[in-house]
Design a binder for these strands. Sequence first.
DNA 1: CCTACGATTGAGACCGGACTCACACCGATT
DNA 2: AATCGGTGTGAGTCCGGTCTCAATCGTAGG
Lengths: 362, 362
Amino acid sequence: MSNDASRRRDVTVADVAKAAQVSKAQAARALGNYGAVSDDVRERVLAAAEELNYRPNELARSMNTGKSNTIGVVVGDIENPHFGLATRGITDTAKKSGFNVILVNTDEDTAAEVDAVKVLLDKRVDGLIIAPASSVDTRHLEGVHKSGRPLVLLDRKAPGLVVDTVAVEMEGISYESTSYLIQEGHSRIAFISTIRTDEPYFAGLPLESSQISDRRDGMKRAFDEAGLPQPEDLVRLNAGSPESIKKITRELLQQPHPATAIIASDGLIGLSVVEAIQDLGLSIPDDVSFLMYDDFAWTRLTTPPLTVIAQPVYEMGVAAAEALIRQIQGRKAPVAIPEFSATLVRRGSIGSPPNRGGIPVN
Amino acid sequence: MSNDASRRRDVTVADVAKAAQVSKAQAARALGNYGAVSDDVRERVLAAAEELNYRPNELARSMNTGKSNTIGVVVGDIENPHFGLATRGITDTAKKSGFNVILVNTDEDTAAEVDAVKVLLDKRVDGLIIAPASSVDTRHLEGVHKSGRPLVLLDRKAPGLVVDTVAVEMEGISYESTSYLIQEGHSRIAFISTIRTDEPYFAGLPLESSQISDRRDGMKRAFDEAGLPQPEDLVRLNAGSPESIKKITRELLQQPHPATAIIASDGLIGLSVVEAIQDLGLSIPDDVSFLMYDDFAWTRLTTPPLTVIAQPVYEMGVAAAEALIRQIQGRKAPVAIPEFSATLVRRGSIGSPPNRGGIPVN
DNA sequence: CCTACGATTGAGACCGGACTCACACCGATT
DNA sequence: AATCGGTGTGAGTCCGGTCTCAATCGTAGG
């Protein structure tokens, strides 16, 4: 009932100084905890601050320290648990060092990303963690880097950019898991990804995402090594909506020379693929084998539980945040960030391809 | 190769003004797009800005406009898809109106929440959307509200606070779904929640979360109406980790007078409960019926698909953001926010309780 | 030709802190 | 007693914008 008259305009150091009968400079020192202040003054100031319910204006503080204690995080889709977990790793780590996180969603749209970076920079974030929508179109990121703003890439590399990058070594795990499928007898292995392209996939099509092209490379290596032809016709991109994913899945499985195994490039895709398979009345792994990237908890609940490629997502978020904070705090030496590795978790969704007597393996 | 010397210190209005040969004031007007500026000046200034690659310092701008175009979002756990989706709804909506989002995770810890609010306020966010960890301990929220800062509660109500609140009407849906279970023949219905308490549950224990107590109320009503005794002994709180959830599930199902149906209060809990049930070698719904809050996509993939209570989470995020922005923009009339309603999605995880001939129903 | 009014314009105050600088104090040195 | 080094202190500048205010300019009205 006392401070109700305080309409708008909040308490400032000047107010506190006046109340404590000291100069603004002294009050600021006592409150900001810097410089030399006598015990007597400090006490009076703190008491006055408490009394007036003073709260520092971080904006003002940021203005002349040049640090906002805020980092910007730009991801394609928070709704995707993959990023949800990574974000959690980032925020947890940031909080420990006193940083806040401004989160921006880009819907995997580069234009939105360019914009997000601009806004974040205008807000003077101390650094950026970005999961770039494109590994190719990275001029805006180069801009950030050149301007000296700390920057860390998450999940995807940008070949042209020499920046701290926290990502999983994809070629290897892709090779490993593809080889596994081949060993099980598969040669018609499909790969479905969200990645947007103007034209349908063909061998050699440059892929926007380092992650996806690395996976393709791994698959190629496995096929080459096995002396099998690349099933390029089974690579499907632009799998955006659940509907399109289901449609693609149906096509892959119902065409004359169908896929016998499907690799989903992320959990969201996997979800719809499995659903489509169930809708078709097909059984995993008897009719079709299934493998997906990201080890979400629910993959253990399906019948059979799904074989997945587990990525240390949370840890990567943590690593990204740590690397960024290291940069922000100026400790040069961009301590080589360890490359994270994914692991193939074999559960029950991969088996031998169905025996379709008569259909040549080509 | 030209602007490489520009170490640190970025371009300011003053620089632009000098380059354009006009006063700082005029340059600021042209750039900020306010006040009167002649076409000639505007052109020169914009050209100079372009040339120098000028970018406004939003911090400085915020300082004297008093608006940061940033809203703070405080949730218990972004990792939980429930909040992931809601956050998506919030950020999507905020972006449309030009607002950014600072996201803070509290781990459902009130102390962390108090702190988060403080930090956000210090950063002068224009408003806050909070999913309060406690519906009871809300002094900090009252503080925010009294100070006049726009505030919207998400997901949970705070009885003492008259603030825009976006939440699902829980009592009703809980009553409806419990009645459904009772109709199917269940009377031993367990309820598992993450909510933290100091003591185990007993009838009348005040619950921190309005959401949970409303659900309990709905269950009570259903039991009362059916003339059945309340299975208070089957209410289990403090289900934090997957391990504890599994332990609780085992206890509920293996005790002398076991539960025949389990209601999981959110998707994360549901996940572990189902896993525990599978581990026990029991089958849903033959051995035990299952119902969970939140309709995640994966619930359609299990065998059988799970019966769930779907909540319009994304829409709630949108509504919360819209309400907040409305407050920020000063349009008074806190347009009564429609209460959102959840729907019972009947799939296959609820059936009749197993026939345990001999065990009295008490 | 003179006056009035709206459009322009520049100087400078201001937002709320951090920080520089000059100066007063005080006990310790020599 | 004069000097030295360190602690306290207040005045005032600065950060990078926004905004007020008074002065200036151009020209339509009388």
